[in-house]
Design a protein around this nucleic acid. Structure first.
Ligand code: FES
Ligand code: FES
Lengths: 158, 158
DNA sequence: TATAATACCTAGTATTTTAGTAGGTTATAA
DNA sequence: TTATAACCTACTAAAATACTAGGTATTATA
């Protein structure tokens, strides 16, 4: 019941990319520095994101990455799945055989839980998170030195 | 984004215990055999469940384990937490510092996700799962040889 | 009172996964 | 031609997980 840095890095990096959509492209070196993520590790994650057509890379000087689609068409679920995080709570992966060939007592519970999570992450889009982040940043700019103002944002519940 | 066998074993074993509540107690050896779980590993899990007052152990011949409380007062969240599965999706564990001291871009998302999961698992009780299992078993007894009748059960959504 | 069954405890280890490093090659703008 | 960036592959360190081994303590019962 963990989410690893792989998924977190991927979402964070994609968010960085979405926020900088006004620029032509963003280099991984930039993202690595901004978000404090190992460059080489990022490259590996982006290889997977590219294979799933979530980002587009451009080589050479001035090159970098950009979203392959609108931020409003990329869900968090897609990102996490792209970098190989299973998003699956059953042990049997649907085969109903984790109890030495048989279905275990709690199988159904994990299926329900998986559905719940999937539903949640499939309905949150990068675009929404991006706008929230920008709003938070804007607010911090206009109301400086106001600490403790934990940003209250709405994430759509299914 | 996985749930490990630790949590799955714990819930499955607790469910086994709940289903056999009519018996005075159930030995771990029984559970291990029924559910195909390593006995020694189960013992370690039950040490944790006991510390959280979820089960009560009785030594000696005829001894074993029983639920420390009614199955309707034990939530799945309690079980999973008891065996040390974090149930937490942030990397910072609330400290907002996973980006080298600063809060990362996606922090809020993981908080929301954690809340979602917690809410779900906190509202499912062992008692409900137990009754579902019994019902499924009963149905299989009265309608034998009827394959493909995937049991449709209701798990409360929050 | 001896025995066996059970919980209870601790340390170690094998395996797997994760996270990261190293060291390249290719493409391309300037 | 050069520098910059993507792109690629293999290796490695660290951590977590799953499991094993080998005990001790308690207690019903023969
Ligand atoms: S999780 Fe599917 S059979 Fe156990
Ligand atoms: S998850 Fe909390 S700061 Fe990154």
């Amino acid at each position: 019941m963990r989410l690893t840095t792989k998924g977190r890095y991927a979402v964070t990096a994609m968010l960085d990319l979405a926020i900088n959509h006004n620029k032509d492209s963003v280099t991984l070196r930039n993202i690595a520095e901004n978000q404090k993520i190992s460059l080489s590790y990022l490259e590996q994650l982006f290889a997977k994101l590219r294979k799933q057509d979530l980002v587009k890379g451009m080589r050479g000087p001035g090159g970098g990455y950009r979203l392959a689609r609108s931020a409003d068409e990329i869900s968090i679920a897609q990102i996490i799945r792209a970098v190989d995080e299973p998003m699956e709570f059953t042990d049997c992966h649907g085969l109903e055989n984790c109890k030495g060939g048989e279905r275990c007592l709690s199988h159904h519970l994990w299926v329900q839980l998986t559905d719940q999570l999937d539903d949640f992450l499939s309905n949150i889009y990068l675009g929404a998170l991006m706008r929230e982040s920008e709003q938070a940043l804007e607010q911090r700019r206009t109301e400086p030195r106001q600490t403790g103002d934990r940003q209250k944002v709405t994430v759509p519940m299914h």
